[in-house]
């Protein structure tokens, strides 16, 4: 579904990604693990076309995405939930939810999103999206891209800084959308959480993929992983 080959990215003079290679198959949940600054978020942004300069190849359903504008990539069926969540303070909660245009049939209805995240239903009337708690903002950021019909979701650290009960809720959501046939690329610092949702894990270091660990081998690869992540 998503094939990344020799992806390089730059922010101004700094060369962040040095030839990233990996693939995500349809219906999989795949994580990018790695220390801070390894290039995980930049990889997500590069797939979406949100970096000033990128080279290499990002193929989505066989079509080349490098060279397209972010809006064209979104229309192809990739949606991002960014690390900083990207909730708009000048929009109400409902407006935030309805903001992303529908790009394909098969997205969740607003009712289904409210069933996944009952908090959002209660807060729907809130006038400013940024008035929500961190957890609610995260639910909103995930919920609004489920509506669009995009089947490839890029979730950048959706559990960062959230209470355990909300982390569990987000974990349930990821398993639920996987069952519905969505494909997820997930950036995570917390590999214990990643292990509960993912099929495979790619490990990043210094702007490159250095290892791939299938989820069922995660337990036996703990020593290696601790070394990679420095935890």
């Amino acid at each position: 579904m998503l094939e990344v080959k020799g992806l390089n990215a730059w922010y101004g003079e700094s060369h962040i990604l040095h030839g990233v290679d990996f693939e995500v198959r349809e219906g999989e949940v795949v994580t990018l693990l790695g220390r801070n600054g390894a290039g995980k978020t930049t990889t997500m942004k590069s797939i979406m076309g949100l970096v000033p300069r990128r080279e290499g190849s990002v193929k989505f359903r066989g079509n080349e995405m490098v060279g397209l504008m972010p809006n064209q990539i979104a229309r192809a069926g990739i949606a991002i939930c960014p690390e900083e969540r990207g909730i708009f303070g000048s929009l109400s909660v409902t407006e935030n939810l309805m903001l992303p245009p529908i790009v394909a049939p098969g997205g969740l209805t607003v009712e289904e999103i409210y069933t996944l995240f009952p908090n959002l239903r209660e807060r729907a009337k809130t006038a400013h999206g940024t008035k929500l708690s961190g957890g609610e903002q995260q639910m909103l950021a995930i919920g609004r891209i489920l509506r669009t019909g995009a089947k490839m979701l890029l979730l950048d650290e959706p559990t960062e800084g959230l209470a355990p009960v909300i982390v569990q809720q987000i974990g349930r959501t990821i398993r639920e959308i996987k069952n519905r046939g969505f494909t997820v690329l997930l950036v995570e610092q917390n590999f214990r959480f990643a292990a509960t949702v993912a099929d495979r894990h790619y490990v990043m270091e210094h702007g490159k993929i250095v290892d791939m660990i299938p989820n069922h081998l995660l337990e036996t690869s703990m020593d290696k992983l601790h070394e990679y992540l420095g935890v």
């Binding site: 979406m48 504008m69 979104a74 708009f88 303070g89 929009l91 407006e95 309805m98 903001l99 669009t148």
Partner: peptide, 24 residues
């Protein structure tokens, strides 16, 4: 209106709105 919501959102964070598929 929803057009207005898109405008306000783009005023706040244009790249994010473009990443949703809007031709900013």
């Amino acid at each position: 209106t929803s057009l207005g919501a898109t405008l306000r959102a783009a005023t706040e964070n244009a790249p994010m709105v473009q990443a949703f598929g809007v031709n900013v």
